[in-house]
Amino acid sequence: MAAITISPVTTKAERGQWVDYVYKANAGDPNFVPQLRGEELEKITAGGNPFHEHAKCQFLLARRDGVIVGRIAALIDEQALGQPVEQGMGPGTGNWGALEAETQDIAHQLIAAAEYWLRAQGMTRVLAPMNLSVWEEPGLLVKGHDHPPTVMMGHQNPKFQPWIEAAGYIKAKNLQTYELDITKEFPPLIQRIVASGEKNPKINVRNVVLKDFAKEAAIILDILNDAWSDNWGFVPITDSEVAYTGKKLKPLIKADLVQIAEYEGEPVAFMMTLPDMNEVLAKIGPKPSPLGWIKLLLWIWRPRVKTMRVPLMGVRKKLQSSRLASQLAFMMIEYIRANSVANYGASRGEIGWILDDNQGMNSIAREIHSVVNKEYRIYEKAL
Rank of each mutant, 00 (worst) to 15 (best):
L141D: 04
L281I: 08
I364H: 11
N31I: 03
Y379F: 14
A282E: 12
L99F: 07
T183F: 06
K143F: 15
T5P: 00
E137G: 00
W135K: 05
H54C: 12
A166Q: 14
F51N: 07
P158H: 13
A329C: 13
W228A: 04
K248V: 14
A74K: 01
W163L: 01
Q104M: 09
I223T: 04
N278C: 04
R125N: 11
A74R: 00
G97R: 14
E14F: 10
R71Q: 06
I260G: 05
L75E: 06
R15S: 08
L132M: 06
K283T: 13
A255K: 06
I253F: 13
K171Y: 02
F270Q: 10
R304P: 03
R337Y: 01
V268P: 04
F160W: 14
I164G: 02
M277D: 04
E40M: 13
G285C: 13
H147V: 09
G139C: 06
L355T: 07
K306Q: 15
Y21R: 01
E375P: 06
K199V: 04
N373T: 14
E241I: 03
P303W: 03
Y178M: 02
I44H: 07
V67A: 15
Q58G: 01
A3Y: 05
N362D: 04
P149K: 01
G314F: 07
G285M: 10
G90R: 00
M1D: 11
S322R: 02
P158D: 08
V69C: 14
V235I: 10
D181E: 13
A214P: 02
Q359T: 13
A25L: 05
L291S: 03
A120R: 08
G349T: 08
V305E: 11
S321G: 05
L324M: 14
A112H: 09
E102I: 05
I333M: 15
V341Q: 03
L41M: 07
G154V: 06
I364T: 12
A98V: 13
K215N: 14
E198K: 12
T10R: 15
P187L: 05
I170A: 14
H108S: 10
S196Q: 10
A114G: 03
W299H: 02
Q109T: 00
S363Q: 15
L110K: 01
S133N: 04
I237D: 00
N157S: 13
L249K: 07
Q83K: 02
L224M: 14
L127F: 04
P158Y: 08
G168I: 11
A120E: 09
Y23M: 08
K12E: 10
N174M: 00
G349P: 04
A120V: 00
L274A: 00
I170R: 15
D230P: 00
L75R: 03
V134M: 11
V22C: 12
P251E: 12
M277G: 15
Q161Y: 10
P286H: 06
I219S: 09
Q109I: 07
D239G: 10
L118Y: 00
R192H: 13
Q83V: 03
A255F: 02
Y178C: 05
N49T: 09
A55D: 05
I190L: 04
S229N: 14
S7I: 01
N373D: 12
P129V: 03
F186R: 09
H369Q: 12
P236G: 15
M272G: 09
G345T: 03
A3L: 13
D356L: 01
E198S: 08
V280P: 02
S7R: 12
E42F: 12
P149G: 05
